[in-house]
Amino acid sequence: MIRRIASLLDPFLMALIATVVLASLLPARGAFVPIVGAAADAGIVLLFFLHGAKLSREAIWEGARNWKLHLAVLAATFVLFPLLGLACGALPFLPAEFAAGLLFLTLLPSTVQSSIAFTAIARGNVAAAVCAASFSNLAGIFVTPALVALLLGGATGGFSWASAQTIVLQLLLPFMAGHLLRPWIGGFVTRNKAWLGKVDRGSILLVVYSAFGAAVVEGLWQRVPPLGLLVLALVCLALLAIVLGATWWLARAMKLPREDAVVLLFCGSKKSLASGVPMAGVLFPAASVGIVLLPVMIFHQLQLIACALIAPRLGRQAES
């Protein structure tokens, strides 16, 4: 039993936790603050450049054919989730900072790698999962900042021209540059997927260290007691359970083929940590990024554990 639980733990999340511990014990101070901040900004630019380079144009055109499924995934990601996020914000026992973090979580695009992997394990439509996850991430570049500005304008300090300029320079332009250069660098990206993945994760860890370090200096752990973390985890678990049930019900209501229903279940119920970390670094004040990312990190692990339990069962049902 212990081995099975350990196998469900995401090694990357363990690295994230270690980074949070490091930032809590040794946050950047004094002259190191601008150095770490500049490195984190560079990491965000590199991260979105690689996101753009990985996005296959063929997958975009091929996926446009199954528009019914992709619209359902986008609706779950950018309509159902945000509505639930607003409902979470109305919970009387939830602090305002946690409510803002949960709402930000619900505005993020879906994951790519894990959605595709779990769809394959469940014997779903893998090609459609690739397209649905790619569409979600492409839409998230534009939709997530717009929804944050609309629904979280106060938490971000207001959406000004400077904020829009930062989004364009750190998120949109690197993403477009990576995608436009894909015909020349796509082969390199594919051949070196393993170590580029480490660069990808390293950039996220750097942003997390910068964000949590700034939050710790501002008194993060004095504002977040252990009981508060437990309540936050329970709310994230309830949110995940509702979305998993809703996407499976929606697939049946739409009378989707079983293989496409699996895609909607896994792509429509996930939120991307890889997109959430750098976006939070751009969209929120430095002192509040750490606490905003807590729900994202907790939900990330819960979704992996839940889908790791569901996918093999669906796969066995398909085989039988």
Rank of each mutant, 00 (worst) to 15 (best):
I5Q: 10
F104I: 07
F98N: 06
L47E: 03
L304Y: 08
G52S: 12
S7D: 09
F135D: 08
V79A: 15
A38G: 10
F32L: 12
F135M: 09
T156Y: 01
L244W: 05
I116G: 08
L230Q: 04
H300Y: 07
A40S: 11
A253C: 06
I167S: 00
W161Y: 06
L74H: 14
V168W: 13
L108H: 02
S136C: 05
M14S: 13
A241K: 00
L256W: 01
A211C: 07
V130P: 01
N125T: 02
S136G: 14
G158E: 07
V33I: 13
K198V: 08
G219E: 14
A129D: 07
A64G: 14
F81H: 15
V20H: 02
F32G: 07
R182A: 05
T247V: 09
A246S: 12
A31K: 00
A149R: 02
S136N: 09
A177M: 13
G281K: 03
V263L: 08
L294R: 01
S24T: 14
L171I: 15
G43E: 00
G124D: 11
L8P: 01
V126K: 07
V189M: 12
L107Y: 04
L16Y: 03
Y209A: 15
A39S: 12
G213Y: 13
G63A: 06
W195S: 01
S160D: 13
G157F: 08
I298Q: 09
I5N: 02
A280H: 12
V126A: 14
G202R: 03
F135I: 06
I242S: 09
A39R: 02
V112H: 06
L55S: 01
A214E: 11
G52I: 08
A274C: 05
F48C: 03
K198I: 06
P11Q: 09
E58T: 15
A99Q: 10
S56Y: 00
L91I: 14
I141L: 15
A287R: 15
S134P: 03
L55C: 04
E97H: 06
G30C: 02
S203R: 01
G213F: 01
A128V: 08
M297A: 15
P225R: 14
A287S: 10
V79W: 02
A241C: 07
L80G: 03
N137H: 07
G315Q: 10
A129Q: 11
S134V: 05
G290K: 14
